[in-house]
Nucleic acid binder design. Structure first.
Lengths: 164, 164
DNA sequence: AAGTATTTGCAATTAAGTTGCATTCATGAT
DNA sequence: ATCATGAATGCAACTTAATTGCAAATACTT
């Protein structure tokens, strides 16, 4: 109950098996479990969250979850939210759940979905008093740089350059 | 040479000893070295970057750098940029270097500073063809949630909630 | 110069995420 | 229905960013 803005994912409309069929991914029990977990969740989940939810019903390995999420990302089934604490969270990517920003508590790691906002809503949102304190905004665009697009083997250089 | 937009930090105007004095932080050789390194850098640096640059001149421990950066963050001397790979980068926070977005290559980790943009510039920027491929935009606001503000000892719960 | 609170260094630890390889399994052809 | 095969999984070990506790060293105050 942190904000009045509402953000319903409505992912109940999505079907795990159907999605795997469409994206030509093998329908393994593990993939179905991970996808079902994400579909039925109203909030983004970390790998540990997913493991905890699934392990009560079936056996699944941490590495498998990582690999499943990687394949889901590749197919555009899920979005990854990288938080300030270096832990990734995952949410279903469908037309019922458009891209939006998140608030993450740097103390307990709690992650809050924020509504997609128009410009006027954004102003209203930022100026409204609320009961959490934002002290940092991270906007990072991730992708492939020119050099890596060409060579695709600069995996460990970690150079930093300016765009001047 | 990735973008035509220019983004000069101009932090040469800043003085390490003066900054430490102003913020009432002990002027230790380690703090001066870390601050000098950040002031003279035109790009954000990781802890490893900072270590590599300093260790040629003086002995300094990794943990010390982490703690120095934490104290600098607390005083508002530096900003932390959390990247998609879970590695934090640090840049001087002064009026010559206003808040801006970053592009980070998910393959080599390269970090690019993007200009602070107006709304019209943003449109122009996003629609312009460029030589890196953005496949993901992370916008995360970090801070302290209501619960942690009250108790300040929920450090390991990592709950996730929605803002509905 | 002495006392004190702060800072540093070291060693050990935590935890997210990755890699290699052997085993198991889903799928499509027979 | 069975089989062959490429794909997915599980396990163990590893990598690495970041943190913690504590003793030793150091910067500031008087």
């Amino acid at each position: 109950m942190i904000e009045k803005l509402t953000m319903k994912t409505n992912t109940e409309h999505c079907d795990a098996r159907e999605t795997l069929e469409k994206t030509s991914l093998y329908k393994t029990p593990q993939r179905i479990a991970v996808l079902d977990t994400l579909i039925s969740s109203s909030v983004p989940l970390s790998v540990n969250d997913i493991l905890k939810k699934i392990c009560t019903q079936q056996k699944i390995n941490k590495v498998t979850v990582y690999r499943i999420l990687t394949s889901f990302k590749g197919k555009g089934i899920v979005r990854e939210i990288e938080t300030a604490r270096g832990i990734s969270y995952y949410e279903i990517s469908c037309h019922h759940n458009p891209v939006h920003a998140h608030f993450s508590c740097r103390h307990c790691g709690m992650l809050v979905c924020l509504d997609p906002l128009t410009v006027s809503q954004t102003w209203e949102w930022f100026t409204r008093p609320r009961n959490f304190t934002i002290d940092h905004i991270t906007i990072t665009m991730t992708g492939t740089c020119h050099q890596c697009e060409g060579t695709l083997n600069c995996n460990s250089t970690a150079d930093v350059v300016n765009n001047t």
